[in-house]
C-alpha cells in the first residue's frame, strides 16, 4: 500500500494544458461556454464502432488517459444512447452493423449530434462501399461533424469536439 501511495505522490500530475495548441487555446473558452449553455456543463457521448479496425478505438480510449483527461471539459462517454447528447461513430458502416447503428441513433433524445470519426467514417477509407460495407457514416445517418485521420489522434479528436461545440445547433433534419 505504501508503495502505491509513494508512486502516486512521485508521479504527480501529468495532465496537460492544451495551451501548446493555438487552435485549442482559442476554442477552449468557447467550448466551456457552449457545454455550459447547451449541455449544462456536461456533454455525454455514446461511442459506436460500426465497422472500424479498432485503431480509432485505441485513440478514443487515450482521451481518458491522464494526459488528456477529457472529462475535465465536461465530456464523458456513456453506456446508454438514452443518456447521450452525441453519437461518435467509427469505421465504415458495415452492412451487418447498419441496423444496430440506426437503432442506437433512434434511441437517443433529439436533437443530438452525430460525429463521424476517422477516415473510414468520413469517406469510407480503405474499405469504401461494397457487398459488406455501406462506406461513410453519412450514407446511413445525418452527420454533423467529420473528424478525419487514420486514426485521428486524441488531440485531433479534442479539436473536433471543440469545433462541434462551436456549432450553434445540430444539423436540421
Amino acid at each position: 500500500m505504501l508503495g502505491m501511495f509513494n508512486k502516486i505522490f512521485r508521479t504527480g500530475l501529468v495532465t496537460e494544458e492544451p495551451a501548446t495548441d493555438a487552435e485549442i487555446e482559442q476554442l477552449a473558452p468557447e467550448l466551456k461556454r457552449m457545454v455550459d449553455k447547451q449541455f449544462r456543463g456536461s456533454l455525454a457521448i455514446r461511442m459506436v464502432d460500426a465497422g472500424s479496425c479498432n485503431g480509432c478505438e485505441l485513440e478514443i480510449h487515450a482521451l481518458n488517459n491522464p494526459y488528456y483527461a477529457i472529462e475535465r471539459y465536461g465530456v464523458h462517454f456513456v453506456a446508454s444512447p438514452r443518456h447521450a447528447d452525441a453519437l461518435l461513430v467509427t469505421g465504415p458502416v458495415s452492412r451487418h452493423m447498419e441496423a444496430a447503428l440506426i437503432a442506437t441513433y433512434e434511441a437517443m433524445a433529439k436533437p443530438c449530434y452525430v460525429i463521424a470519426s476517422g477516415d473510414c467514417a468520413c469517406n469510407g477509407g480503405e474499405f469504401g462501399v461494397n457487398y459488406a460495407s455501406c462506406g461513410a457514416v453519412e450514407n446511413v445517418l445525418p452527420v454533423d461533424l467529420k473528424i478525419p485521420g487514420c486514426p485521428p489522434s486524441p488531440a485531433q479528436l479534442i479539436r473536433g469536439l471543440l469545433i462541434l461545440m462551436g456549432q450553434r445547433e445540430p444539423v436540421q433534419r
Binding site: D49, G51, S52, G91, P92, S94, H96, M97, A100, E126, F127, G128, N130, Y131, A132, S133
Partner: peptide, 10 residues
C-alpha cells in the same frame, strides 16, 4: 461477423 467488411474481396 458484425464488422465484416469484405477485406478478402477488397
Amino acid at each position: 461477423g458484425y464488422v465484416h467488411k469484405g477485406i478478402e474481396k477488397l
